[in-house]
Design a binder for these strands. Structure first.
Length: 287
DNA sequence: ATCCAGGGAACCC
DNA sequence: GGGTTCCATGGA
């Protein structure tokens, strides 16, 4: 268990992008993932850390020498994100949480996920290092597939369309028609992941790529949201300043970004740029 | 009241 | 097919 001051001070991880379910926040100052490791993954905690925090990826390798020489001002700023990790989250968790993330702010996204866990997850009984705040697991597909519609809607910011989309995706996952773990095989082409996930209602390219990047360990997947679109234009002159992402424009920008950042870790690097843009350019808080 | 927040889908030439 | 318009919701 780490507390936030350790993290921010750069003790080990200077910044963690705490996407809603990535880290269970215990209170305003501390968080834990210990119980997640044992509860969900049934593997030793050390192995879980290594894998969950993608400690096999060295941040110094995200941007090559050519990038550094072309964008020295960015290089300097990216150094401040030395500890930023992209997490290997559970694919179903990533699917649901990013389905909650359309046209809505981060605070609202987190609130939705917290409510989903509290309403439909199982209470966890781990050793929480002295705190007695209850933690809840993320619900599994069957639990959301069977969810009471009204309660599910209340967990989804009262958006019934979103709630129905999540229930249907969960139903497909529960009966095996949607096999997220098979899709997570490294040999599966990104285009197939996109095709499979976008066939679900409520999931377009952006959310599909987020699920691949954060939930399937596909660090080559490069999701483009409003912030990414902004920094692609402002920093790299990729795409014009006009907004509006048609499907074709999305794929076009994505190809150019991957060409700039390199195919293998484009999404991982992109997330560093995403964080850099939000914190240094938009003055948004990391947590 | 108005606009924004880590988009998606319906709709129209 | 490809681009524009509408959609939904709560908070600042």
């Amino acid at each position: 268990m780490w507390n936030k001051s350790d993290v921010i001070s750069g003790l080990y991880l200077s910044v963690i992008d705490s996407h809603p379910v990535a880290i269970r926040q215990i209170n305003s100052a501390s968080f834990s993932i210990e119980t997640d490791a044992e509860y969900f993954h049934r593997i030793p905690v050390e192995q879980f850390f290594e894998r969950y925090f993608s400690l096999d990826i060295a941040n110094q390798t995200l941007f090559d020498d050519e990038f550094h020489s072309r964008f020295p001002h960015l290089t300097k700023r990216l150094l401040q994100l030395e500890g930023l990790r992209v997490l290997r989250q559970d694919p179903y968790e990533a699917l649901v949480t990013f389905m909650c993330a359309q046209g809505i702010g981060m605070a609202m996204i987190r609130r939705q996920v917290a409510m989903l866990c509290r309403c439909f997850g199982k209470e966890l009984h781990g050793n929480l290092s002295g705190t007695d705040t209850p933690l809840f697991s993320f619900p599994d597909p069957q639990e959301l597939a069977d969810a009471d519609p009204e309660m599910l809607r209340s967990c989804c910011n009262n958006n019934s369309i979103r709630a129905n989309n999540i229930r249907e995706a969960s139903r497909l996952a529960a009966i095996g028609a949607l096999d997220l773990h098979a899709l997570s095989e490294p040999s599966v082409p990104l285009s197939e992941i996109q095709r499979e996930l976008t066939s679900l209602r409520g999931i377009g390219y952006k959310i599909a790529d987020c699920i691949a990047l954060f939930g399937m360990g596909r660090f080559d997947a490069f999701p483009i949201d409003t912030h990414v679109e902004q920094f692609l234009s402002a920093w790299f002159s990729i795409g014009s300043s006009r907004s509006g992402l048609s499907q074709k424009r999305y794929l076009h920008l994505q190809r150019e970004a991957v060409e700039l950042l390199g195919a293998s870790l484009a999404g991982y690097a992109g997330h560093h740029l995403f964080h850099c843009w939000r914190t240094t350019e938009r003055n948004m808080k990391a947590f």
